[in-house]
């Protein structure tokens, strides 16, 4: 069970490792770890913590993409859920109900997307574009256009607290990913989602309830976005409807792609997507530490992403294999006695 998973995520793990090595070469203290007041601190821990929003989104996005869909609205859902949680805490509902309200809001947003895609039959790109556009407006209505701050220490703990030595957001994305992977692989859900993503019609003719599956997948994406929204909001102790989760849907899609999942649907790996999110955040951390002027940030990030995707691309893998055999055969040809003309 473990071995095939490892083999699947090997390219991503190697990429992550290579990045860490690269950054450490430029900036040796990147690997520093120390225990302060019973919590681990260091650049790596911070990178893992900062990965939380994108990693959480990537979990949901992986499933949506596995069904041949895409969810552009998760960034806006982050804003909505963050705003509702901050509003509820501020209005004195208490932490528990506030979290419940935020998570329900996320699931409701996901259900809306799912219904548009699975029942109304709108293309996922367009269907989720609707909420992507409208969602931020809804969040602004909740916050009345200002940054809604709160002081509830329990809520803040979600963003900056520590549990067993590690930041709470790290636990959050880690447990969400593990739990989701377990649910998908220990039940038949994973295979059914893949079947629907590869051939929805054939799956439906075999009795797979494609509609319900599609709706559920978007609901899960909404739930994951809600968790990400809680982390983002708790982190700055305020709901910033204009900026919370802005463009994060694109980072999440990128994480899924770096994770080697096809945008055409089908086979998926949550672990690989989450490592993809870690890779993106490691790049961000490296850029920050390196101290380049900010004008270079996006260019460096894009260049690294291109390199990663090109190296992982299967067709290039084929070229490498071809090159290797070509080199090998040339070497052999050189060592072989030159009795006849070498054939081209």
């Amino acid at each position: 069970m473990i071995f095939p998973v490892l083999r699947r995520v090997a390219p991503q793990l190697i990429t992550l490792f290579a990045l860490i090595v690269l950054i450490t070469l430029i900036f040796p203290s990147f690997l520093n770890l120390s225990l302060v007041d019973g919590r681990l601190v260091g650049p790596l821990v911070d990178a893992a913590k900062r990965s939380a929003p994108v990693a959480l989104l990537a979990v949901g996005m992986t499933l949506v993409i596995a069904t041949k869909g895409i969810d552009l609205s998760v960034g806006a859902i982050i804003a909505i859920c963050g705003a509702s949680a901050a509003w509820a805490v501020g209005a004195g509902y208490g932490l528990g109900p506030a979290l419940l309200i935020a998570l329900s809001a996320g699931i409701a947003c996901g259900l809306w997307n799912g219904v548009l895609v699975a029942i109304v039959g709108i293309q996922p790109f367009v269907a989720t574009l609707i909420l992507m556009t409208a969602g931020r407006g809804i969040a602004q209505l909740i916050t009345e256009g200002r940054i809604l701050t709160f002081t509830d220490p329990g809520f803040a703990w979600i963003g900056s607290g520590t549990l067993l030595g590690l930041p709470v957001p790290v636990w959050l994305w880690f447990s969400t990913a593990v739990l989701m992977a377990l649910i998908l692989r220990r039940t038949a859900l994973g295979m059914l989602i893949e079947a629907v993503g590869i051939n929805r019609r054939a799956s439906a003719l075999s009795g797979v309830n494609a509609r319900v599956l599609l709706i559920a997948v978007y609901a899960v994406a909404g739930f994951c976005a809600a968790l990400a929204g809680l982390v983002v909001t708790a982190d700055i102790r305020g709901a910033d409807a204009n900026n919370a989760g802005l463009w994060l849907e694109l980072d999440a899609i990128l994480a899924v792609v770096i994770g080697g999942n096809s945008l055409l649907g089908g086979r998926f790996s949550i672990a690989a997507s989450v490592i993809g999110a870690l890779i993106i955040q490691t790049i961000n951390a490296g850029i920050l530490l390196a101290g380049f002027p900010p004008e270079y940030n996006l260019v460096i990030k894009a260049a690294l992403v291109v390199v990663i995707l090109v190296v992982q691309s299967p067709s290039l893998g084929g070229h490498f294999a071809f090159l290797r055999t070509a080199l090998l055969s040339r070497r052999e040809a050189r060592h072989a006695p030159q009795t006849e003309e070498p054939k081209p």
Binding site: R186, T187, A188, L189, M191, L192, A195, S203, S206, G207, V208, N209
Partner: peptide, 14 residues
């Protein structure tokens, strides 16, 4: 196993 699994439901994996 696709049809058999679909009829059993996702909660009861084969």
């Amino acid at each position: 196993v696709l049809a058999l699994q679909a009829s059993k439901g996702w909660m009861r994996p084969i």
